[in-house]
Design a protein around this nucleic acid. Structure first.
Lengths: 128, 128, 128, 128
DNA sequence: GTGGTCTAGACCACG
DNA sequence: GTGGTCTAGACCACG
């Protein structure tokens, strides 16, 4: 079978975003490549036992962000690799993780300076 | 009813850790306080439709980490607040978020210097 | 062969604790040293004709108490000697023996003063 | 059924002593009383799947120490309660536990003075 | 009722 | 191979 999507009611992330983000991850990681077909919205909705409107919204998000294009009557397909777009999406993910770190740091009463120090500790000279 | 636990099969995090971490969060946030009873292991297992052994494992994790204590025949209860322990757990969470950020940065080809710059941008002078 | 573990159904001590305690003893006495591999959880279970879950529980106890570490795919190994930890474990054993003595003294109707006197008799000037 | 005896190959205590001591415990605790019959040596040997010689030695120990008497062709019976004997046996058990404590203390490098302090801590003012 | 232990099996990830 | 998780059931002690 083709695509593995795992949904979670925990965490509060909307289902359509969970779907879109997991498909983006598979595109970023090269598991889905230019021209590969996505499952039809109706099939995916049936598989995941969710509403067609939800898969539709997920695919719209993928189209708007430039990863996928859909052709009426033919289906949805991964677009040609756009390095600029890939980089932007990956930076967005770095930012999201850093935001989470800042949020946790705020709760923990960690100062900005300490946060930078922790970042260096964890980074451990792995790269410049 | 008392406790809200949301389980997710996505992300690969073991069920017992999801339970333990969500309960820790509620203790850290003061929603569960010293002396408060947790649901019995068997009741929680029934509610979540999982095995008793899995809720037991979650509660063991909470005991080992010092947030909860269980008494045979009595039940499980939130322990007295230990500021040192709370701080350590919160720092652990900051580290986990920073680790995730580093992992994403590595995938994105973001340098350490850029990562620190992004951290400053996001932190936005919110605090020193 | 490597490790000698003797299980007893008498005394009511859980099997996983018997295993953990006997391994701790061998580490305390230097029969098992830093880096030494323990038998795999499944092999030990087979040898002792008990469930894998029980040996796993024993090894978890050893990990939690800091004597052993396990690596998925690799096995379980004795950790580097930690004098502080060794001393704490040995003190725990002294306390356990003294608790047993107090329990017996209570049954025998021996007073605290008499108990101290008996302790001096037995200790017999062996050490200060 | 009458008597519960649990044997252990761990600990190195001879089987005949394990039997004798467990029966003494049941007499001390009043679970076996003056006049109560013990199982025949041959029956007990069969139940425990050990040699008749071993149960015989256990019963000889019980006779010598004054807890039991045997009548050829009739069987073995708990003797009338002898307070002096009970007290001596209980003191022997206190001593055994204290010896174990001293042994552990020696390994732990605990001084005599510290051992007395630990005894007071554990005793906790429970009794004088 | 409560928690505690143990089993015998399954399936997983890692390599 | 290794350890890690989970299940569905059993039986136990405590009260």
């Amino acid at each position: 079978m083709g695509l593995t999507i795992l949904l979670s009611s925990a965490g509060g992330e909307p289902i359509y975003l969970q779907i879109a983000n997991q498909i983006k991850t598979q595109i970023l990681e090269g598991k889905l490549r230019a021209g590969d077909p996505l499952p039809s919205m109706r099939n995916l909705a049936a598989e995941l036992r969710i509403s067609f409107m939800t898969t539709k919204r997920a695919y719209e998000e993928l189209e708007q962000s430039g990863f996928v294009e859909s052709f009426t009557g033919k289906g949805s397909f991964v677009k040609a690799k756009d390095h600029q777009l890939f980089r932007e999406e990956q930076l967005r993910r770095v930012e999201a993780a850093l935001s989470e770190a800042c949020e946790q740091a705020r709760k923990a009463g960690v100062t900005s300076r300490e946060l930078h120090e922790m970042l260096d500790m964890i980074n451990g000279g792995d790269f410049q």
